[in-house]
């Protein structure tokens, strides 16, 4: 009990301290001299896309994105590794009529939205992430409603899809390197196409991965025969 009080007190003090420090620091900060937006604007014509955020994400700072996809992959791999063995998996939830209808109607719409977002990405807000997550959302809905037994499991096909986006990204990266260019330095002429290609592949993979994170989450069945290793 005493520890609990202490915990709350200290956490409170620390949070307030951080808050106050941030508050004050923000108040006295000066405007920086370097202006990246200006640089972005300058470089936009060479980026291959007309939407600045997409340009930053997939061209200027594409390396961040590459690693980010790797992060996503890491989560997906852990999900695959810790996923229940098939016999542990529970049957899909009982279908609900209203949800069913809703999902059935909305899924094609969501796919369309995703396609739009992907296509829009190069010129205006939208892009692979948004599109991928919309697709993933659709899949989650389908899964929840039990209408379609979608599953991202150990099968090779699933795994191929999971790594598809990253593979394309990597192939492009390797290609640029083999061409004697810096990593992910697209030839100006191909930049737009390459970015779109990467985005498309990423959309698919992101969708599948996000869904797999949902789908592969372990059931909460008491550990009868968990897929453990090492201590088995």
């Amino acid at each position: 009990m005493r520890r609990r009080v202490a915990r709350h007190a200290v956490a409170g003090v620390a949070s307030v301290a951080v808050g106050i420090a941030l508050w004050q620091a923000i108040g006295v900060r000066s405007i920086p001299t370097v202006s990246l937006p200006a640089l972005v604007r300058e470089a936009m014509p060479a980026s291959g896309v007309s939407h600045d955020i997409t340009a930053v994400l997939l061209n200027f700072r594409s390396y961040d994105t590459l690693l980010e996809i790797a992060v996503l992959l890491a989560a997906a791999v852990v999900a695959l590794a810790l996923r229940d063995t098939p016999r542990e998996r529970m049957p899909a939830s009982q279908p609900y009529l209203i949800l069913d209808t809703f999902v059935w109607r909305i899924t094609p719409l969501l796919v369309l939205v995703a396609a739009y977002l992907l296509w829009a990405g190069s010129t205006r807000p939208g892009g692979a992430f948004q599109a991928g997550s919309v697709l993933a959302g659709a899949a989650v809905l389908l899964r929840l409603s039990g209408l379609a037994v979608l599953s991202v499991d150990d099968r090779l096909a699933s795994r191929v899809v999971v790594v598809f986006g990253l593979s394309v990204f990597l192939l492009v990266a390797a290609g640029t390197l083999l061409a004697g260019q810096p990593l992910l330095a697209y030839p100006p002429a191909w930049a737009g196409a390459l970015i779109l290609m990467i985005e498309a592949a990423l959309t698919l993979s992101i969708a599948v991965v996000l869904f797999s994170l949902f789908d592969n989450a372990p059931q909460s069945r008491p550990a009868a025969a968990p897929a453990q290793r090492g201590e088995a």
Partner: peptide, 8 residues
């Protein structure tokens, strides 16, 4: 008491 420690 890790949170406490962190806070401190």
């Amino acid at each position: 008491v890790a949170p406490i420690v962190f806070g401190v």
